[in-house]
Design a protein around this nucleic acid. Structure first.
Lengths: 182, 182
DNA sequence: ACCCACATGTAATGTGTTACATGATTTT
DNA sequence: AAAATCATGTAACACATTACATGTGGGT
């Protein structure tokens, strides 16, 4: 039920529509959670059934009515209980590593190109995170605790992408060296 | 359909029963893929319907018959086509980071203990990986390509866990420092 | 006596992805 | 004129988790 809790976490900051939430899950929240609008709308209606959130409908001219969601006292309590519970480290399923393992089935060039493509993707993400760091966390120690906690998520993103980059570089070296000798 | 391809990758090495595969997915394959025996048995019967694998039933005394799966020529071709296709970097959903973000809702001690617990988990995994490295990859450059590709997966695991550890340590410092001043 | 390894599966439920569906307003 | 933003949803399908279900043989 963690998507539900990720949504509640956003609603702790401010009331949101499904649309607003979808944007957040494509932005800052995507550092540790991803969800599409379909999932979000679905989950919001579940949460409303549970009375963990309530909503007010705001009529609009020329577009669909807006539904603004608000976390309830019950929702807040449930969220706090959830935070206290221990959790498992995330499990990842990595197609690229599987393809690398099968590298002997295709021409080396295919694998090298895919590695380079992934290296670029991680490079780009890292640069986005680095920019964020410089823009909003110049002097992190001076920030209030809440901001420092968000800074930790950003540091995790930076570390994760940095490690990926280093690995891609190393993998290209290993495969490149083999290409020269074999 | 990537679980299917992960299974086919295992079957490229040797014929396996569902039980054998489940063990591999708990062991070396878990570096980049996880699956339970229920999922594996299900997927094997799908793959057999598609004729990407075939099986021979081996009767046994005093225990259930064994079904030994073997990749077909069609399965092999499909696997090669799949390796050639580009893929997306993995997306992770990280409950711990979400809980950290909500750190102001509970006592600091709760978060610090959970961080320490995760640090221990990552430390343990890292030590398993380091042991594997010392046991099987003493002189990686001397190994054949296939073994070097597996070595790359191990290096990725080591890098991943190392980065996690560093982050946990940093997070404890940030929260610990705050505890002293606030 | 109890637990672990062997060996297979079904069923229910929960979660996530992709495709479909609509339609005005604002920006390029 | 085209594309992006705003704003909501349904439906089908794919994938994952948890619980249930069975039963032998070997080690502590």
């Amino acid at each position: 039920m963690a998507l539900a809790h990720a949504i509640l976490a956003c609603l702790m900051d401010s009331d949101c529509t499904g649309y607003d939430l979808a944007k957040q899950f494509n932005g800052s929240v995507s550092l540790f959670w991803q969800a599409t609008h379909q999932q979000i709308y679905q989950e919001l209606s579940n949460l409303e059934t549970l009375c963990w959130v309530d909503s007010q409908t705001i009529p609009q001219a020329g577009r669909p009515d807006k539904k603004l969601y608000h976390i309830t006292e019950l929702g807040r309590k449930q969220l706090i209980e959830w935070v206290k519970k221990p959790c498992k480290p995330p499990s990842t399923k990595d197609e690229l590593l599987l393809k690398i393992r099968l590298g002997t089935l295709v021409e080396r060039q295919v694998i090298l190109e895919e590695l380079e493509r992934h290296r670029q993707i991680h490079l780009k993400k890292l640069s986005v995170y680095q920019d964020l760091k410089h823009q909003r966390f110049q002097n992190p120690q001076a920030l209030p605790l809440k901001a420092q906690l968000r800074y930790l998520a950003l540091l995790r993103g930076i570390g994760y992408e940095t490690e990926w980059l280093a690995w891609c570089t190393q993998a290209v070296q290993v495969l490149g060296a083999e290409a020269a000798t074999n």
